[in-house]
Amino acid sequence: MKITAQTVNYISRLAKLKFSEEEEIKMAKELESILTHFETIDKLDLCDIELNVFSKNLKPVLRKDEDIYFEEKEKLFANVKSFRNSAIIVPKIIE
């Protein structure tokens, strides 16, 4: 699959990113090599591969949850722009 600088420009606009022309050309080459690699992997015959080979004996490693009281709230809120009581107020990001 051929990736062009125009494709990178279109994707970057969707992601609200800005790249220079040189960066778009470099990114197009990198994305094309990644997609070429995936095409190579897609051609492999993986029918005989068992996917759950390791999952039989594995158990999740969990740590015990412990409540720790943080006494220095001034340090915790030192770099916060605004907060109310013990809640940090952040700008709305969902429209």
Rank of each mutant, 00 (worst) to 15 (best):
Lys56Phe: 07
Ala5Cys: 01
Arg84Ser: 08
Ile3Ala: 01
Tyr10Cys: 01
Asp48Tyr: 09
Pro60Tyr: 07
Asn79Glu: 14
Asn79Met: 07
Leu14Phe: 03
Asp65Arg: 15
Leu35Trp: 05
Glu23Thr: 04
Tyr10Gln: 09
Thr40Lys: 12
Lys18Gly: 02
Ile94Ala: 08
Glu22Met: 06
Phe54Leu: 13
Ser12Phe: 03
Leu31Asn: 01
Glu32Trp: 04
Leu46Gln: 03
Leu51Glu: 07
Leu44Lys: 14
Glu39Ala: 06
Val80Gln: 07
Val61Glu: 07
Glu74Lys: 14
Ala87Ile: 11
Lys43Gln: 15
Phe54Ser: 09
Leu14Ser: 05
Glu30Lys: 15
Leu51Pro: 01
Lys18Glu: 14
Lys59His: 12
Arg63Gln: 09
Val61Leu: 12
Phe77Asp: 02
Asp48Arg: 09
Leu58Lys: 12
Arg84Leu: 11
Ser86Thr: 14
Lys81Met: 03
Ser82Ile: 11
Tyr69Leu: 12
Asn9Phe: 11
Lys29Asp: 02
Phe38Met: 10
Phe19Cys: 02
Val80Ala: 12
Lys18Ala: 10
Val61Asp: 04
Asn79Tyr: 13
Glu30Leu: 15
Lys2Gly: 00
Ile88Val: 15
Arg84Val: 13
Lys43Ala: 12
Lys29Thr: 05
Ile89Ala: 03
Met27His: 02
Leu31Tyr: 05
Lys18Ser: 14
Ile11Pro: 01
Tyr69Phe: 14
Ile94Val: 13
Phe19Gly: 00
Leu17Trp: 02
Leu51Gln: 07
Ala78Asn: 10
Lys73Trp: 05
Lys64Ala: 05
Asp42Met: 08
Asp45Ala: 07
Glu21Phe: 03
Ile41Arg: 04
Glu22Gln: 08
Pro60Glu: 08
Asp67Trp: 12
Met1Phe: 09
Leu46Phe: 08
Asn79Trp: 04
Val53Arg: 12
Asp45Asn: 15
Lys29Ala: 08
Leu62Trp: 04
Ile3Trp: 02
Asp42Ile: 04
Thr7Val: 10
Ala78Lys: 15
Asp48Thr: 07
Phe54Ala: 06
Glu66Trp: 04
Glu50Gln: 10
Lys2Ile: 11
Leu14Asp: 10
Arg13Pro: 01
Glu66Met: 09
Ile89Lys: 06
Phe38Thr: 01
